[in-house]
Amino acid sequence: MRQIQMTRRLAEPLKTTCDISLKTFLTVPEVCTYTGLSRTSIAKAREELGLPSMKVMGKITFERARVDEWMKKQGNKNARSVRY
């Protein structure tokens, strides 16, 4: 019986965790988590606002450093238009 229980444990998929801030390239869900934006907002940012991305083997991928740069530029643009 003990051997069966051990086999069940080994058959369970391993859960991997990775700190997004340590990754160089991010997927769409990771960019959503990283930026706090929805998938719709990310798609709009790519298509209309120039969020840099690339396709790798058919998947949309973002370089984290370029996402950081883009976010800073967007913040600077919005800060100029805000009136206090």
Rank of each mutant, 00 (worst) to 15 (best):
T7Q: 13
P13V: 06
P13L: 08
L51D: 03
M1Q: 01
P29K: 01
T24Y: 07
C18S: 06
P29E: 04
R39A: 02
E48G: 06
A65Q: 08
T61G: 00
M71G: 01
G36L: 05
K59C: 07
V56T: 13
C32I: 00
Q5M: 12
P13R: 08
D68Q: 05
T7L: 15
G75V: 06
V82L: 12
K72Y: 10
D68L: 05
G50M: 05
F25H: 06
N78F: 12
M6G: 01
N76L: 14
K55W: 03
Q5K: 10
V56R: 13
K77P: 00
P13C: 06
V56I: 14
S41Q: 11
R46S: 07
A43C: 07
R46N: 09
V28E: 08
K15T: 13
T61M: 15
G36D: 01
Q3C: 02
K72W: 11
D68V: 04
S53L: 01
T33K: 03
Q5H: 00
L10A: 01
T35H: 08
S41V: 08
L14T: 14
V31E: 02
S21Y: 13
C18K: 04
E48R: 15
M6N: 11
E30F: 00
K77A: 13
E47Q: 14
K77I: 15
V56P: 06
M1Y: 05
K73L: 15
N76S: 13
R9N: 03
V56K: 13
F25K: 01
D68N: 14
A79T: 11
V56E: 07
F25S: 02
T40P: 02
K72G: 04
